[in-house]
Design a binder for these strands. Structure first.
Length: 466
RNA sequence: GCUCCCAUCGUCUAGAGGCCCAGGACACAGCCCUCUCAAGGCUGGUACGAGGGUUCGAAUCCCUCUGGGAGCGCCA
């Protein structure tokens, strides 16, 4: 049997990190077993579904590379099918029409709550034979009222529900729209889904879906319920935690493979391994190594994971995404070699945004020097060193490379009888404006002779005046 | 309230009865390396929620409790 999984988000809110983790596991499971990954948009809530949310799902998954093999399918385009199934269910007695008003149902619920009972529909319309004039009925699924339903969950093991706990849920609203649990059952059946992998907030829906599947004559799929992802403070994920659109992570300078690596390690593990390429994730992933307890997001570890992935890419590989981040921030990069900048900054930044911050001085002369660094490294004492360095560097002319710069500074240090730091720091502050930058030889090489010498000249003037 | 789920360092996790007075990772502290910052290396502290069983032996199996979470919609 070929594995078929589906990711079924509802476009009522933005696709966030929790949804992405679910999508990732569905995708990985399909890839791992040579199966098919399907995207299905559950948009039956026409009030709250938005096109913008659908677009984020599509764009987000494309950015992450979680491309579906089939779909996207939209439930709103399958209404004919749902209505046909409901017709059958009505005909064979697995469903019936209910004329209860909303206020009547509210009263029923209130009474049950007051008696400390579990609120549920009591089936009062089950045996009604005559329509109620002037009322458009809803259709309810007739749940078996005896026996048990066993959900054989791959991550949780068997979960048993008494049928008595399940009431007759509405499958068709009075406005003609079918409801969630019903559409899911029909779709999973029609699409031949073999493994339903979703959040464990759906565990309680599962026995109902199994019952409907059986009533329709379908064999239920295998289920795997994933633990929830919580915010860094251990509470439910919310906008406050950055449960924002997954695309925000792209803007924040994360690499898709790093986000996926981090998310993969939430609720799943492969021994002590922390860093995985996408290929390794596909190779090692399996549902039996998924754990059952909820996990909290750790922004520090996500950042570390991102840095590790950046370090494993070449500057040239990083350059396009880095350029995108710079452009997004309106930074003009001129003729600076972005691949070279990324190469020497990739281990000094947790994200591409941090990289952009650290690279700012490459694209514009410092407008002022950082006070502490300037007073320490640009003063009357260091001015002569800068003058000497400037002269030695200027002699390089056309041979302005990192290696050449390095050699010049090394010999200058010997001549002056000082440590490299005595020369490097004043130069660093001169060209970068602060005491922090990549190695001075690489920094000067990237800047180019003209720009570097110009900045050093300015710094010499400043140093002599202070 | 009822039903269901969950429970190892602050966080992510390893652990499927003896290899565990519990290992790795993030974060934190110290040291080393060093032209700054990083990266890297080394060292350190902190965890099996509680109580009962089962067993020669339990983080691992069973029960109870406690604590957290989800569901109980003409939402998905």
């Amino acid at each position: 049997m070929t594995v078929r999984t589906r990711f079924a988000p509802s476009p009522t809110g933005m696709l966030h990190i929790g949804g992405v983790r679910t999508a990732l596991f569905c995708w990985l499971y399909a890839r791992r077993h040579g199966g098919t990954f399907i995207l299905r948009v559950e948009d039956t809530d026409r009030e709250r579904s938005t096109d913008a949310a659908v677009q984020v799902i599509l764009d987000g998954m494309a950015w992450l590379g979680l491309t579906p093999d089939e779909g996207p399918f939209y439930q709103t385009k399958r209404y004919d099918r749902y209505h046909a199934v409901i017709g059958q269910l009505l005909q064979n007695g697995h469903a019936y029409q209910c004329y209860c008003s909303k206020t009547e149902l509210e009263e029923l619920r209130a009474g049950q709550m007051a008696r400390k009972e579990k609120p549920r529909y009591d089936g009062r319309c089950r045996h009604r034979t005559e329509p109620l004039a002037g009322v458009t009925p809803v259709v309810r699924f007739r749940n078996p009222d005896e026996g048990q339903v066993v959900v054989n969950d791959i991550v949780h093991g068997p979960i048993v529900f008494d049928s008595q706990e399940l009431d007759d849920l509405i499958i068709l609203r009075s406005d003609g729209n079918p409801t969630y649990n019903f559409c899911v059952a029909v779709d999973d059946w029609d699409m031949g889904i073999t493994h339903v992998i979703r959040g464990d907030d759906h565990i309680n829906n599962t026995p109902r879906q199994i019952n409907m599947l059986r009533a329709m004559g379908a064999t239920p799929p295998v289920y795997a319920h994933l633990p929830m992802i919580l915010g860094p403070d251990g509470t439910k994920l919310s906008k406050r935690h950055g449960a924002v659109s997954v695309l925000e992570y792209e803007s924040a300078g994360f690499l898709p493979e790093a986000l996926l690596n981090y998310l993969g390690r939430l609720g799943w593990s492969h021994g002590d391994q922390e860093l995985f390429t996408i290929e390794e994730l596909v190779q090692f992933f399996d549902l039996d190594a998924v754990n059952k307890s909820a996990s909290a997001l750790n922004p520090d570890k996500l950042a570390w994971t991102n840095q590790q992935h950046m370090m494993r890419r070449s500057g040239a590989e990083l350059a396009p995404r880095f350029a995108w981040v710079l452009a997004q921030r309106g930074i003009e990069t001129g003729s600076i070699d972005l691949a070279a900048v990324a190469e020497c900054l990739k281990e000094r930044a947790k994200t591409l945004v941090e990289m952009a911050d650290g690279a700012a001085f490459f694209f514009a002369d410092p407008t002022e020097y950082e006070a502490k660094a300037a007073s320490k490294h640009l003063n009357a004492e260091t001015a002569p060193v800068l003058v000497a360095a400037r002269a030695a560097l200027a002699a390089l002319e056309g041979a302005w490379t990192a290696a050449a710069v390095h050699a010049v500074l090394e010999s200058l240090v010997v001549i002056l009888g000082v440590g490299l730091g005595k020369v490097a720091q004043p130069l660093r502050v001169s060209v970068a404006g602060s005491g922090v930058s990549p190695p001075i030889d690489a920094t000067l090489a990237i800047l180019g002779a003209a720009v570097a010498l110009r900045r050093i000249d300015r710094a010499i003037q400043y140093a002599q005046a202070n």
